[in-house]
Computed example of a mutant assay.
Amino acid sequence: MKKSLFIITAFLGLFFTACKKNEEGTGKLYGNWKLKETLADPGDGSGRYIMVKEDKYLKMSPSGKITGDALPGLSDFKIVDSVRIEVYSKNTNQNSIFYYTVTGNTLTLNPPCTEACGLKFIRY
């Protein structure tokens, strides 16, 4: 009986210490970001991310507000799922779906484009 109790206790201890929340979840989207690279493809698949020359910033708040000068035409966002956000324009009633990934301290946003385009930010 003592051996069974020990095994169960050891298993539960291992289970609870080994379980860790996924830190790559949507909560990591919130925060302050600095634009580092942009992607523009001419339509032939040759597009590459290139470093930006001037500093631009983005703040994604838990309340759904977008501020900063990196995306000046946008005002709000709503998380659709783990890879998409719906963004709202400041000046029109139009909304768009952006794809996003957060990996470590890097946020990649892919707005709707005819050809490949994207924005890479680092958390600051």
Rank of each mutant, 00 (worst) to 15 (best):
R48P: 06
L74R: 00
C117K: 01
R123N: 12
P112Y: 08
F15M: 11
I122T: 07
A70Y: 02
F16S: 01
S89R: 09
Y30N: 12
F6I: 11
N91K: 15
T17N: 07
R48H: 13
V83E: 10
D44A: 05
L71E: 01
D41L: 11
G47R: 05
E54A: 14
G64T: 06
N95H: 13
M51D: 13
G118Y: 05
T67Q: 02
I122D: 03
I7P: 03
G31S: 09
P42E: 12
G43S: 11
M51P: 09
T9K: 00
S96Y: 06
L29R: 04
V83P: 01
F98A: 03
V102G: 00
K21F: 09
P72E: 02
G64D: 03
P42R: 10
N32G: 06
Y57P: 03
T92E: 09
I79C: 08
S46W: 10
K65V: 11
T114D: 11
G64Q: 03
R48M: 13
P42Q: 09
Q94F: 12
F16Q: 01
G47N: 08
V87R: 02
S82A: 10
D41K: 04
A18M: 07
S75H: 03
Y30A: 11
N22G: 09
L35T: 06
E24M: 08
E115F: 14
G25F: 09
K20F: 02
L39A: 10
T106P: 00
L109C: 05
V87P: 08
W33G: 14
G73E: 04
N32H: 08
E54T: 15
T108P: 00
K59W: 03
G27M: 00
K28M: 13
Y57V: 15
K78Y: 02
E24A: 11
L109G: 05
F77V: 04
V52C: 14
N22V: 14
T103I: 12
P72F: 00
P42Y: 08
